[in-house]
Design a binder for these strands. Structure first.
Length: 417
RNA sequence: GUGAGUGUAGCUCAGUUGGCAGAGCAUCUGACUGUGGCUCAGAGGGUCGCGGGUUCAAGCCCCGUCACUCACCCCA
């Protein structure tokens, strides 16, 4: 094999593309119902945009970005996530001047330079939504509810919503200190990674899967207990509205986000049917990101769905794939030209019409029609051409009869079925 | 970045102590010459991931490399 796609980067082929289209169509429909407009964002941005918003010390920025220098000497990066580019565009085009809430969705590829594994590739697709300009917890709940509706429409089962609040810039530092204090004395019980996390990002210790760490952190304080009054009220509100909207969820105070910009509400949708990478969607509130990008103080909340992970949960990837509406067989040169023109007419009416391109036998043409799962076959040979008729055959009940060799007549019959 | 496993036909995979490259499915063709699925017969299709080494001889043994898979880290 001469050339291969790059490591961790895949072609998406038929019939899988069929599922992708269906999923995207469902998503667009749900977004439309909730009043979200599409925004199309570039996949490449100035590196700074990600460094500042995602956080200098996060793994994404430290080791996972596709960053290079362009011919003008600028450092550019293939987007590892969608929120930062979105907020950049939001501020650049003064979208905050529209009446709130400003609601947008996007879909497209993201890039992270990681070792590929199940549910993780270097180029992967996300469908994301962002709602800005509303501080009230009702929008948090509505965004989560919309995600729930969307996943439901797609037919995803065996998923669980996990929700928490990670506080704000006022209360999170207190919690961080309290957590460090409580872990200080038993730090030697933790794994090497957790020891490193203790300084770099102590909240991550809560997310460690090593058994000894899970045991050792028992009894340590919970974020939700350290929320300031405002954050507490907000979180209670989110829960209230989630119940009102009948969204089933569990509170997971150990839920940790890998991006620095999140405040208050954080949530994740997990599937037990996936491998180690079990999050199919995740999101949260960002209180000051718009400000950090130079816009007016505008809160936002959003989520991103991992498209490949969702697709892998859909049981029959080729279900729903259909064959042509009609297959046109020909015998002889005159008939070949006749069906070529006829197919064009039928196609203009929106039918999927397949024709034969070579001199193969009627038998092999029929075989092809059958393999393609054509619903109806038309045969035009010398006889038909002379009488200006066509033989039309239903592939299911095998019945065939003659019809006038006219597009309108054939259309009429097909549409009756 | 770390660890383990796997790379042979379009797909799924056999391939013995090193001795002519295989099967099933798929594709194409044919079976009283204008009718599909089932059956039967046949055909095409291979740089055995790539590069080196050992050997009279390597798909098989050795080294390197690339890719895939799974896991860690982390995340959608």
């Amino acid at each position: 094999m001469r050339h291969k796609a790059l490591k961790g980067i895949q072609d998406i082929l038929h019939p899988e593309t069929f599922i992708w289209q269906r999923l995207e169509a469902i998503a667009r429909g749900v977004f439309r119902a909730y009043g979200y407009s599409e925004i199309r964002l570039p996949i490449i941005e100035s590196t700074e945009i990600f460094q500042r918003s995602i956080g200098e010390t996060t793994d994404i920025v430290e080791k996972e970005m596709y960053t290079f220098t362009d011919k003008g000497g600028r450092s550019v990066t293939l987007r590892p996530e969608g929120t930062a580019p979105f907020v950049r565009a939001f501020v650049e085009h003064h979208l905050y001047n529209e009446p709130p809430p400003q609601k947008y969705y996007y879909m497209g590829p993201m890039f992270r330079y990681e070792r590929p594994q199940s549910g993780r590739q270097r180029q992967f697709y996300q469908i994301g939504a962002e709602a800005l300009g509303v501080e009230e917890p009702v929008i948090d709940a509505e965004v989560i509810a919309m995600l729930s509706v969307l996943l439901n429409r797609i037919g995803i089962k065996d998923i669980e919503f996990e929700v928490t609040s990670i506080g704000c810039s006022k209360c999170r530092p207190d919690y961080k200190n309290a957590l460090k204090e409580s872990l200080k004395e038993k730090l030697n019980l933790f794994c090497e990674d957790c020891k490193r996390r203790y300084e770099a990002n102590p909240l991550r210790i809560l997310d460690c899967k090593v058994k000894t760490c899970v045991d050792a952190r028992q009894g340590s304080p919970s974020v939700t207990g350290f929320l300031c009054d405002d954050c507490k009220v907000h979180f209670n509100g989110v829960q209230h509205y989630l119940k009102l909207l009948n969204v089933h969820y569990v509170i997971n105070p150990n839920l940790v986000r890998g991006l620095d910009y999140y405040t208050r509400t954080a949530f994740e949708v997990k599937s037990s049917l996936l491998g180690a990478q079990n999050a199919v969607a995740a999101g949260g509130r960002y209180g000051s990101l718009v400000e950090e990008f130079g816009g007016p103080g505008t809160p936002g909340i959003g989520f991103a769905i991992g498209v490949e992970r969702i697709i892998s949960l859909i049981s029959e990837p080729s279900a729903g794939a259909k064959g042509p509406d009609i297959f046109l067989c020909s015998m002889g040169h005159g008939a070949e030209e006749k069906i070529l023109v006829l197919a064009g007419q039928l196609r203009r009416e929106g039918l999927w019409a397949e024709i034969n391109y070579d001199k193969s036998s009627l038998r092999s043409q029929m075989r092809r029609a059958d393999r393609m799962r054509a619903k109806t076959v038309i045969v035009v040979g010398e006889d038909e051409l002379k009488k200006n008729t066509a033989t039309i055959k239903d592939m299911q009940d095998k019945k065939e009869f003659k019809v006038p060799l006219e597009a309108e007549e054939i259309l009429k019959i097909i549409k009756e079925k």
